[in-house]
Design a protein around this nucleic acid. Structure first.
Lengths: 96, 96
DNA sequence: ACGAAATGTCACCGTTCGGTTACTCTTATG
DNA sequence: CATAAGAGTAACCGAACGGTGACATTTCGT
């Protein structure tokens, strides 16, 4: 599932929790957080901290994968029209 | 790339930012946050908020995908030794 | 319909967040 | 060598966090 917003995240967590037969207290305890936090996150709280989110994922037996989008919509740096060979070389140079 | 910890996340963000030829100020501005925040996140800050993280990903042109682990290591509910047929039925019933 | 379990909400509190600004340090470009 | 750019750090601040415990509401089995 693709996660774009905090609401997506909350929906996923809830779905997965229910699928595993846990209630909010179970999940909170096993993920080392509070039930209040689970409630808020499942409701899509955008300011939850990633550390807790990652612990919750682990508890739910799910993984987060990150991938570069095919359609390169990334707001490129200052001059999108040119390939800056120096940037590329710099990037390579900086790799230890 | 698989994200397991806040440090993973920071490393990825930095790598991707450099690859796109942005400095920390560029990224901060485009993602609607501060340079301080970028510094901290790239260093693996575990308490950064997911909302900002998601906005940063969007700016970097990357997607977050979540997937159920193959090896079902999820800490199951209370009785890991039995398959609880009722939970399974419940889960199915709850799908609209 | 009844009661229990699960979920949602509230107030309180100490802690930490993220933004701003300014300063340092390293690197590398002229 | 000078100095500019990029990155790291510090202090300050208001705002929001997350935990606790209690209470209200919804959901569900029987």
């Amino acid at each position: 599932m693709r996660i774009r917003t905090a609401a997506d995240l909350g929906a996923f967590i809830r779905e997965r929790r229910v699928k595993l037969g846990m209630d909010q207290s179970d999940l909170a305890e096993k993920a080392g957080t509070s039930r209040k936090w689970i409630v808020e996150v499942e409701q899509g709280k955008p300011r939850a901290e990633i550390g807790l989110v990652l612990r919750t994922f682990k508890t739910l037996g799910v993984s987060l994968d990150i991938a570069v989008d095919r359609a390169q919509k990334a707001s490129l740096a200052n001059e999108p029209r040119n390939v800056d060979i120096n940037n590329i070389l710099d990037s390579l140079k900086k790799r230890p």
